[in-house]
Design a protein around this nucleic acid. Structure first.
Length: 571
RNA sequence: GCUAGCCUAGCUCAAUGGCAGAGCAUCCCGUUCGUAACGGGAAGGUUAUGGGUUCGACUCCCAUGGCUAGCUCCA
């Protein structure tokens, strides 16, 4: 049985063959299979254009039609370099191979150094498509030359390829940047105000408030307290925390205020630590769980900014937990439980945890690292969520666990993180008084559940395709009087809904009913309430639910009951 | 930041060196309407910004800003 990776890898060879035939001066770099298909990097005189991709696809069709066999051969280093003498990138790779034997695969006149395996014949490839051409650095380093990369994909069946392309279309349709504008949720004013800075419109702000309210109430239930900290602080604070040394490239330049340098905060932790230090903490005070919807500013290079997903100013749903070692396990467990609960409430149910362990360079003792890592591992295991361990992937100050959530299109997003920190308590000389009066270092946990509100909002918009569940919808019900005769009745209905805490609107514009239904539907409002002569007489409403064709006539009280039922996040 | 492509009305897009245009949205008028696009009219532009080439530039060239897709990075 063929595996898809082999199949796609072979397709990338066919593509490289086509490129070599059409553009003989191109030099080959690498061409692996990737999650959604494959790519191949070339060093070419000119970048590839859209038209070139079509030509390359046609040439590939010819190679496939010839049904050439893939043949494997092994050469010594010497011979390999000889065979690849016109391919400088291949030579570089060959020289790094430890074995003397180098394997090659050949079909027709095209030969490529490659570990393999490959499919038997080019004719097996039938359903493929070239997707895009972009620049990519040789070996991923911007110090190296930029090569030209062509992405493509291949599938066993036409149905799978069509489904993949349809999925790409769906992703495009759900793009939060488009929906954000269509639904009047937010805007970005790159020219006037700067890229990566978000303006939340009333509808977007309503959703944000709903998210924040829910977040706060769940935190209160979980024993958190809230604090607020300023957006700027003197540079010394960032020198003490160490950010000025290891995080400088993401920090905005200092601003001079009365001869002192101040920095826009890229993180909330130093502020929380200052609060901790305002008095001597007892072992009985711990754990302290302090949360803040803290807005931070980070310099991101212009090329990486994207919609709400990657910005220069954003609000973290941050919290810091100061605790004793013996409390660590429970605190970690509770944080992960809270995160899962919140994600479920927003309609996510598929999670994957990644545990990152001690890297080569670290602060703190091995014993503490092992203990903290075990605490993380035990918490994850007892919650029965699949996890993987990323050996040596943690940051220098402590082990961490991250959670990827999967949206309804199967895309994974990293939002949640919980990080143990042995470093900052040390740098700021944090302590608490133990039972016997001696001083001890508390352990500090950093954690964010949604990560950034901006980014999480983007994920929600795309997850729901802008059709937010009733509890999050900026407008839950739009009331449409059939004629001006019913405006009074519509207003009465409106006041009644408002008084019950339902987010309602009236559209009594001088437009045909069908026009106003169209607009209400496009706004993705969950409920449309039509009131005409008949409804007024019977004191009812004609209810049209989002994504449903049928219309039901019910009393306003029944509608209120219905919407109240939906007014809470699902868990 | 780098590579490539792109930037025309609020939005989506025409105009290939010779008079800047359409649809949607907006505003006005008409229509008073029973479940997804009513009719008519008006207004809307220093063609991203700055320079250059040319008798003449939305169009060609240069710089700057920004966007898009990647690379790298990441909440």
């Amino acid at each position: 049985m063929l595996d898809l990776e082999t199949f796609r890898h072979s397709t990338s060879h066919i593509m490289a063959d086509a490129v070599k035939q059409l553009f003989p001066a191109s030099k080959l770099a690498i061409g692996p299979a990737i999650e959604d298909g494959f790519y191949y990097d070339f060093d070419t005189e000119k970048p590839f254009f859209q038209d070139d991709l079509i030509k390359i696809e046609q040439k590939m069709a010819e190679i496939i039609k010839e049904n050439l066999p893939f043949e494997r051969t092994e050469y010594s280093h010497q011979k390999a370099e000889d065979v690849m003498k016109d391919e400088p990138y291949k030579i570089e790779l060959i020289r790094e191979l430890p074995d003397d034997k180098v394997t090659f695969y050949k079909h027709g006149d095209f030969i490529d150094m490659c570990r393999g395996p490959h499919i038997e014949r080019t004719g097996l490839v039938k359903h493929y498509k070239l997707l895009s051409a972009t620049g990519a650095y040789w070996r991923g380093s911007e110090k190296n030359k930029m090569l030209q990369r062509i992405y493509g994909t291949a599938f066993f069946t036409k149905e799978e390829l069509d489904a993949f392309l349809a999925h790409r279309e769906e992703v495009k349709k759900r793009d939060h940047r488009i929906l954000g504008e269509d639904l009047d949720l937010f805007s970005i004013h790159q020219e006037e105000a700067g890229p990566g800075l978000i303006y939340w419109h009333p509808k977007g702000a309503t959703i944000r408030q709903l998210i924040e309210d829910f977040w706060k109430s769940e935190h209160r239930k979980s024993g958190y307290q809230f604090i607020y900290s300023p957006h700027i602080a003197k540079i010394n604070l960032w020198k003490t925390s160490g950010h000025w040394d290891f995080y400088k490239e993401y920090m905005f330049s200092p601003m001079d205020i009365e001869g002192q340098n101040y920095i826009l905060k890229p993180m909330n932790c130093p502020g929380h630590i200052l609060v901790y230090k305002t008095r001597v903490r007892s072992y009985r005070d711990l754990p302290l769980r302090w949360a803040e919807l803290g807005t931070v500013y980070r310099y991101e290079r212009s090329g990486v900014i994207q919609g709400l997903l990657r910005v220069r100013g954003f609000t973290q749903d941050d919290a810091h937990i100061f605790c004793r070692i013996d409390q660590l396990h429970k605190e970690i467990m509770d944080v992960i439980k809270l995160a899962i609960h919140i994600f479920r409430s927003f309609g996510f149910s598929d999670f994957k945890i990644r545990l990152s362990t001690r890297p080569a360079h670290y602060v703190g003792t091995i014993e503490r690292w092992d203990m903290a890592t075990d605490a993380l591992r035990q918490a994850v295991e007892s919650l029965n969520i699949p996890y993987e361990t990323a050996q040596g992937e943690a940051v220098f100050y402590g082990p961490k666990a991250d959670i990827d959530i999967r949206d309804c299109l199967g895309r994974a997003w990293q939002c949640f993180t919980v990080q143990v920190d042995f470093n900052l308590p040390e740098r700021f000389d944090l302590y608490y008084s133990a039972k016997d009066g001696t001083r001890h270092r508390p352990i500090m946990l950093h954690r964010a559940l949604m990560g950034s509100l901006e980014r999480f909002f983007a994920i929600l918009i795309e997850h729901y395709a802008g059709a937010f569940p009733s509890w999050l919808a900026p407008t839950q019900a739009i009331i449409l009087p059939v004629t001006p005769e019913q405006i009074e009745y519509a207003k009465k209905t409106y006041s009644e809904l408002l008084s019950k805490g339902i987010r309602a609107e009236i559209d009594s514009r001088d437009e045909r009913l069908s026009e106003r239904i169209k607009d209400a539907s496009l706004s993705k409002c969950p409920y449309i309430l039509v009131v005409g002569e008949k409804e007024e007489k019977e004191q009812t409403i004609a209810l049209r639910q989002r994504a449903k064709k049928d219309i039901t006539t019910i009393s306003l009280d029944d509608f209120i009951k219905l919407i109240k039922q939906e007014n809470n996040p699902k868990d």
